[in-house]
């Protein structure tokens, strides 16, 4: 139980997708204009990460990995399907995103229209694929650790995008130099937020 909590906290603050790895920047920069839409996208990312990471964990351990098929019979022990990893992970992610899209369209059409193209684009969001690949690389022991990692990464991403959205709402009326308006200042804010998040670097959990 303690291990799960550690993974969860660690993936929110220490290994934050945005501030530690700078993954998923495209939608992070594009959809962070208002708090409300960014909350919506944040939840969508939590949902997608929370499902794809464990599903991909099962895929990796029972189908794709070297010797993962041995549960079928001893003759499959030598099969190594890991060359299919990327394409399978992306297929799972795309399927999940489709599902999220349908749910959001049904539940909140306003949010659906304000997210626009960025909702289907979660499918190619590097934070999502990054989550699955980190899961593979870090060799989580069981599925609950994978779930905890996926949810934690999602929550970390959520915090980052909601935080920057609030800042961008606040500086809307600031007299930012013309060349920096829009994306320029957002990049600078992201860097400054990265400095603030460095307070957690180095914590061993």
């Amino acid at each position: 139980m303690e291990e799960l909590l550690n993974i969860f906290v660690k993936s929110i603050f220490i290994d934050n997708m945005i501030f530690a790895y700078f993954l998923g920047m495209c939608s992070y920069l594009a959809v962070s204009r208002t708090v409300n839409t960014s909350v919506g996208l944040g939840f969508a990312v939590i949902f997608v990460l929370g499902f794809t990471v464990p599903i991909n964990f099962l895929l990796e351990n029972y189908i794709l990995g070297r010797g993962a098929l041995s549960w079928l019979g001893p003759q499959f022990a030598a099969v190594d399907l890991s060359f299919l990893t990327f394409i399978m992970f992306i297929a799972i992610i795309a399927a999940m995103v489709q599902l999220v899209e349908m749910i959001i369209e049904k539940l909140s059409p306003t949010l659906y229209s304000s997210l626009g193209i960025f909702l289907p684009l979660i499918a190619v969001n590097c934070a999502i694929l990054g989550g699955s690949l980190f899961m593979q690389e870090r060799n989580y022991a069981n599925i609950s650790e994978a779930i905890s990692f996926g949810l934690g990464s999602g929550v970390g991403w959520f915090l980052a995008i909601v935080g920057i959205a609030a800042i961008r709402e606040k500086i809307r009326y600031s007299n930012v130099p013309a060349p920096l308006r829009g994306l320029g200042i957002t990049f600078i804010i992201t860097g400054l937020m990265g400095i603030a998040f460095m307070s957690f670097m180095g914590i061993e959990l």
Binding site: K170, N175, L192
Partner: peptide, 11 residues
């Protein structure tokens, strides 16, 4: 200054 001077900074 990139935020527009005194009173506009976030940090």
């Amino acid at each position: 200054e990139v935020f527009g001077g005194t009173g506009m900074n976030i940090l």
